[in-house]
């Protein structure tokens, strides 16, 4: 446990140093507005990262979740428009259900055919997105038609500041959903047998089987939960930006995986934590956000994210080698 804690303290320390440096370069970083928008940007990526963490803990690799998230949100919004339903809870449940269904597909192929998860999820992701764009449609549901209840819901604020000059800034309450889900995943991982079985599976599938874990249950749990989190994140995302775009989240897989790796999870499975993942997400979002503040051209974002992935993986490879030594 000490090792985990240590790698999280290291991440936190790096994070703090980075924040101070960015703050020195551009003091606007510390402004309430910026902090609020930074936290807001954490929510969707963070929820997706929780799902990716589960998969990575088991020694798997998931690149299908952006497709699942898009499918969940777009199908749900389209459905709402078709039947004229408006509400909040039911659409979210529906999106989660779609996510679970897609996750089942991953789990089935990973468990039944013992195929490398990267290849399975490449296939399922392509299928789901291809189905969505090819069968359901390619048109964007924009703010004019977007269900207003969802917009209202996503506008809920936790803290709201109105300055004398009339400008307003607020901290979105969606942050609570993220924190709640993170806490839930943490508790599941730490205090339930199914959570421990994920670590056990990542530690060694053969041993987990011999000890008597039901691997089918574990694998289905992992991929279905990851799918559910992706679906939920997708729904939340469209509610927060007031439009549902079926081409959204392209390239999102890399960003989220980068965040999870940055948070100290091992790609070989068995090591990683929710707290580390949240720190990784925060770090990545902060860097992206600061590029804008520091007036770096947005086209550089990909390059920067890529370099961060490379540095994070070099660092973890170095750490793992030292652990073995």
């Amino acid at each position: 446990m000490g090792l985990f804690r240590r790698s999280e303290t290291i991440i936190a320390a790096i994070l703090l140093v980075a924040m101070i440096i960015i703050g020195l370069i551009n003091p606007a970083f510390w402004q309430l507005d910026n902090m609020f928008s930074l936290l807001r940007s954490n929510v969707v990526i963070g929820i997706m990262a929780l799902g990716v963490l589960l998969v990575m803990l088991s020694g798997g690799f998931d690149v299908s979740f952006p497709a699942f998230a898009v499918a969940a949100m777009y199908l749900t919004v389209k459905g709402m428009l078709a039947i004229g339903y408006s509400g909040v809870l039911l659409p979210f449940l529906c999106a989660v259900a779609i996510g679970v269904l897609c996750g089942c597909l991953n789990a089935f192929f990973v468990y039944k055919f013992r195929m490398i998860p990267l290849i399975v999820t490449l296939g399922t992701g392509s299928m789901v997105r291809g189905f969505l764009l090819g069968v359901v449609g390619t048109s964007i549901v924009n703010i004019n038609r977007f269900p207003p209840e969802l917009i209202e819901f996503a506008k809920t604020e936790l803290v709201s500041v109105t300055r004398p000059d009339g400008s307003h800034s607020g901290l979105t309450a969606m942050l609570l959903l993220y924190l709640g889900l993170a806490l839930a995943v943490h508790l599941v991982l730490r205090y339930t047998m199914i959570g421990r079985s994920i670590y056990a599976l990542g530690g060694g599938a053969e041993a987990a089987n011999r000890v008597g874990f039901n691997l089918r249950k574990t694998i289905f749990f992992i991929y279905c939960t990851a799918g559910a989190l992706a679906g939920f994140a997708g729904m939340l995302h469209c509610s927060m930006i007031w439009l549902a775009n079926p081409r959204d989240f392209v390239g999102m897989d890399l960003v989220v995986i980068a965040a999870v790796v940055l948070g100290g999870a091992s790609i070989f499975g068995g090591r990683g934590s929710v707290l580390g993942t949240m720190l990784g997400v925060f770090m990545l979002v902060m860097v992206q956000n600061s590029l804008i503040i520091m007036k770096v051209d947005t086209t550089w974002q990909l390059v920067v994210v890529g370099i961060i992935i490379v540095i994070a993986t070099v660092a973890t490879a170095w750490r793992d080698r030292r652990r073995q030594a």
Binding site: G203, E206, A207, G270
Partner: peptide, 12 residues
């Protein structure tokens, strides 16, 4: 007790 012990190296 198998030769590889069937233990989880990543757990305590």
């Amino acid at each position: 007790i198998y030769q590889d012990f069937s233990l989880f190296g990543n757990l305590t």
